[in-house]
């Protein structure tokens, strides 16, 4: 076997490669229809919107990696609330950008802490706890913002929409952010602890892993990232709104799973989230380009996601 073949084999064994291949295939399919017109612009648009999915996806990935049943369903409301918190704190003034960001992150972290409080202290399963938290946070967002759309400060709006040679600045920042989180997941004691808990919580505890602290932190992390997403999204789309986070509930889980993270926990994957976020956006854009009706589009979206996961899920059974 030549070394090139070996390289390809090694590459194909990576769980994340399939989401990128899927994204590439969908992009080519879209360009086939338009004859290559606007290929670059489509990539720019894709990168602009994938950023937000990646940010919440990484948080969700940490949660899902801690084992079966762990999921954060409070992301949509957290995005709505933190977007409003960020915009209201900034109040349209450039000088208040930093305090606004910090306030959004703090609000997110607080939601995360409450989530884990419900899970640990009241012993509610995460799926129920975070779902109820979603309602509570949404009500808070409604009461706090009253559906108010406060414009972002000009500097913040410019930053969130800025591009360098067709590449959104936010995408570059998020790529660096993802790389850092990849290192955290795979190279630090904390990341290893997350995986250890996901593989077997009891064994991890017996091995001396601080299970409670680690789990507490993943929920805080996830909600804080949702806060980051909420603030940036509000800047990007010209103001916060109650419905800003609605599409990120299932999308955040989908990008994690399509990206090659094990739903059973214990095996997280950061690069795959990028591939999956690009894939998800391109898929919708491609189907829209082809003029598929809403019904057909949903069916095809479902089928194509199943296809990608089936192909990507070709890894050996673990035991």
């Amino acid at each position: 076997m030549s070394t090139a073949m070996v390289r390809i084999r090694v590459l194909l064994a990576r769980p994340w490669i399939w989401s990128f291949l899927g994204a590439l295939a969908v992009w080519l399919a879209a360009e086939l229809f338009t004859g290559g017109q606007g290929a670059g612009e489509l990539l720019t648009a894709t990168l602009s919107f994938a950023v937000f999915m990646v940010i919440v996806g990484i948080g969700q990935m940490f949660v899902i990696s801690t084992g079966p049943g762990n999921v954060d369903l409070s992301i949509p409301a957290t995005i709505a609330l933190t977007g409003a918190v960020a915009m209201k704190t900034m109040g349209g003034a450039d000088a208040m950008i930093l305090p606004g960001m910090l306030a959004a992150l703090a609000a997110g972290a607080f939601v995360g802490a409450c989530n884990y409080g419900l899970i640990r202290l009241l012993r509610i399963p995460p799926i129920i706890a975070t779902m109820s938290a979603n309602f509570l946070v949404m009500s808070t967002a409604i009461a706090y913002g009253r559906g108010l759309k406060v414009k972002p400060p000009p500097l913040f709006a410019d930053f969130t929409t800025a591009q360098v040679a067709g590449i959104p600045v936010l995408a570059i920042c998020t790529a660096i952010f993802a790389a850092v989180m990849g290192v955290v997941l795979h190279r630090t004691v904390y990341g290893r602890s997350v995986h250890a808990i996901g593989q077997n919580r009891r064994a991890a505890r017996l091995a001396g892993v601080a299970v409670d602290r680690t789990r507490f932190l993943v929920y805080v992390l996830s909600a804080t990232f949702a806060g980051l997403c909420g603030a940036l999204l509000a800047g990007f789309s010209g103001g916060s709104s109650l419905s800003a986070g609605e599409t990120y509930l299932l999308a955040s889980i989908a990008v994690v799973v399509i990206g090659g993270t094990s739903v059973a926990g214990g095996r997280g994957n950061v690069p795959g989230i990028w591939g999956a976020a690009l894939f998800m956006y391109l898929l919708e854009a491609m189907l829209n380009t082809y003029g598929a009706g809403a019904g057909l589009r949903l069916i095809l979206t479902g089928l194509i996601i199943i296809l990608v996961i089936t192909i990507a899920g070709g890894d050996r059974p673990q035991r």
Binding site: A30, F33, T34, Q37, G38, A39, G40, E41, L42, A45, T46, S48, F49, L233, S237, G238, G239, S241, S243, A244, E246, T247, Y281, L282, E284, A285, N288, T289, G291, A294
Partner: peptide, 24 residues
């Protein structure tokens, strides 16, 4: 020349329109 679902929400509309614009 094109049709997308915006779900009566600014963010969703912005996302969908940005995706179809390059092809139009």
């Amino acid at each position: 020349v094109g049709s997308v679902h915006g779900d009566w929400a600014q963010e969703v509309a912005q996302k969908a329109v940005a995706g179809i614009l390059p092809s139009l």
